[in-house]
Design a protein around this nucleic acid. Structure first.
Lengths: 135, 135
DNA sequence: TTTAATGTAACAAATTTTATTACATTAAAG
DNA sequence: CTTTAATGTAATAAAATTTGTTACATTAAA
């Protein structure tokens, strides 16, 4: 997770929460985050596919929350923007070594356990909880 | 944490635990992990600086655990090999936007909390616990 | 003195991440 | 029905990160 995806996604959702009832453009969002609008639209695509956001095309288009920010858990958001294990990747160890042969099986268990704890922890907070911290 | 560092480091420590009393070379370790020996030595450097490993130079050199594997917590290991936030990096938002201006402060809190929980979770297991899973 | 190891710097290659350009599509408004 | 302003997305470029490799200095045993 050495990227900007979680930060970008939560920034988008906070902006939409703070502007409920309006349609917000990706250019406006990009201006707040300070990244390229296409990067924002790529992130919005994922959030849309996950059912968090609705987008309207055409003139006077833009996007808005599809569900209440109180229903969006941060762990769910994390899962949308990150498909990898938190503890990173695995090597492809030597199968002729007893340790090497067993390593990835053990790491898979550890990685799964760790990801589960992380997501459960994040799920204790909603986007609304996070957004409410902003004045 | 989109890299091989944690997997590589724990692989090294398991090998050393499984070969207590011997000096193990970075070439042997590299053969088990299936990576370049210099990559192994780079990781060993960190583990050495953290006091987990001793290395002996010269002919019949190699490395060994400096402390008992039962004293090495996985959370401590994680901190040695990863200096970034688990949830990734932060943008440099627009300070002229009310949300953008506050975003990184809020993310810092969330990121710190999350890292703390992860590390505490990992600290429930030692390298020995992990190593004992290997036949 | 030779040999086999660590230690590390310097650089190359590969992969991942982000930025940019271009353009098709959509829908409102004149 | 044409213009305008937005999304949607593909293709590519650029930047940054990660891993691999080469080279060589240093160390210590034989």
């Amino acid at each position: 997770m050495n990227n900007l995806r979680f930060s970008t996604a939560i920034h988008i959702l906070v902006l939409l929460d703070k502007n409920q009832g309006e349609l917000i453009t990706s250019d406006f969002i990009a201006g707040s985050i300070n990244v390229n609008p296409v990067v924002v639209r790529r992130e919005i695509k994922l959030l849309r596919e996950a059912g968090l956001i609705d987008a309207k095309k055409g003139k006077i288009g833009g996007c808005a929350l599809a569900i209440d920010a109180r229903k969006i858990l941060l762990g769910d958001l994390y899962k949308i923007v990150n498909k990898e294990n938190m503890l990173g990747r695995k090597n492809q160890p030597n199968p002729n070594c007893a340790v090497g042969r067993q390593m990835n099986g053990r790491l898979d268990e550890l990685f799964d356990q760790t990801d589960t704890v992380l997501i459960e922890t994040l799920n204790k907070q909603t986007v609304k909880d996070f957004s409410n911290q902003f004045e």
